[in-house]
Simulated assay, not measured.
Amino acid sequence: MVSIKPMMILIILGLCLILECGKAELPRFEHPIKPDGSLSLLVVGDWGRRGLFNQSQVAAQMGKMGEEADVDFIVSTGDNFYDDGLTGINDPAFEESFTNVYLSPSLQKQWYIVLGNHDYRGDVLAQLDPILTQKDKRWFCMRSYVLNTDVAEFFFLDTTPFSDKYFSDPDHTYDWRGILPREEYLSNLLKDLDTALKQSTSNWKIVIGHHTIRSGGYHGNTVELENRLLPILQENHVDLYINGHDHCLEHITTSESPIQFLTSGGGSKAWKNKFNPVNKDDLKFYYDGQGFLTMKITKADLHFQYYDIFGNILHQSSLPKGFYPM
């Protein structure tokens, strides 16, 4: 494993761009934790709209909460640039939707990013290109990778290629470079994830993807992930699955396993009154407005909070380590 440094990011991203990623074991990186043994982070998704649809207001509150929590890094759950990704490495949308929006001092930390389906509508390799890291050193985007933080391991997963509908969408085109043949790509990705999870000795295992597994939002559950990904998460005692895609904030549990399903897709445009009924005993929290997620992790427990654009705490929960039966 290697520590994240700007030059190393450029080297690794360049290699992965050449290899088109996903064809070897998942790349692994490290991020240091605080001297007291804790880790703090922010999670935001579905944000890239040049500051519009309250993106700037979300960013401002993220900055305030980020300073208060002394965050170590920020996670993006995908759909980084609307509506159709980036046109290339020189697309001004990169600065207009990222660099010039997340201006607060507390947000000048490393951003760990996955791709969403809207990102695949544009030049998907542009978001993986090390030139973007030269433009803004915070930017770290790969298809899939593992981030070790001593108290927790984060498994970032490329979920868009799992969805059948994007491969037959008559209204949009998608950039599948590096994905085809699709079944080989997905099989290798799932095998590599399973191996990485089995090898993990971390206190907390957290998987991050763009698409939902469980959701009461507009998109609802993603059947392909339920069938192919969820069994691997359950078998390997994953603690949390965090996603975007549905433009809302939610916390779901199910009786079938102790995995906590957290949606943080309220980075800009939200969907009002587009709720799909779910088991009321499973749904712990749902908010169809803009906002974001904060998280503090220690070896003993994990605490998370959802905030709206006014800085109000909408929902919070604490999980003691050991709640997942081994």
Rank of each mutant, 00 (worst) to 15 (best):
V2I: 05
I4C: 05
K5P: 01
M8K: 10
G14H: 12
I18C: 03
E20F: 02
E20M: 06
C21M: 14
C21H: 04
G22N: 13
K23Y: 08
E25A: 15
P27W: 00
E30C: 15
P32V: 06
P35I: 08
D36P: 12
G37D: 12
L42N: 12
V44N: 01
G45A: 06
R50S: 14
L52V: 03
N54T: 00
Q55P: 13
S56N: 01
S56G: 07
K64A: 06
E67Q: 15
E68N: 09
D70T: 04
S76A: 03
A93S: 12
A93E: 11
F94K: 12
E95V: 05
F98H: 02
T99E: 07
N100G: 08
S104A: 15
S106A: 07
S106D: 06
L107I: 00
Q108L: 11
V114R: 02
L115G: 01
D119P: 06
D119L: 09
L125R: 12
Q134A: 14
K135G: 09
R138D: 10
M142K: 08
S144A: 13
T149N: 15
V151M: 05
A152H: 11
E153R: 02
D158H: 13
D158Y: 09
F167I: 11
P170C: 10
D171I: 07
H172N: 12
G178A: 03
P181M: 12
P181T: 03
Y185G: 02
Y185P: 02
L190Y: 11
K191F: 10
D192A: 14
D192Y: 15
K198R: 15
N203W: 02
V207E: 06
I213W: 02
G216Y: 11
G216H: 05
G216C: 14
G217W: 07
H219G: 00
L229T: 10
L230K: 07
P231D: 14
I232K: 10
L233K: 04
L233P: 12
N236D: 00
N236V: 03
V238N: 11
I242F: 04
G244V: 00
H247Q: 04
C248R: 09
L249K: 03
E250W: 00
T253R: 14
E256W: 15
E256A: 15
P258Q: 08
Q260W: 07
F261W: 05
L262R: 02
T263Y: 01
S264R: 01
G267W: 00
A270Q: 02
K272S: 15
N279R: 11
Y286E: 04
G289A: 05
G291S: 13
L293P: 03
M295N: 00
M295P: 00
I297C: 10
I297P: 04
K299Q: 03
A300P: 05
H303D: 06
F304M: 05
Y306A: 05
G311C: 05
G311M: 14
N312K: 14
I313E: 01
H315D: 09
H315R: 12
Q316K: 13
G322D: 07
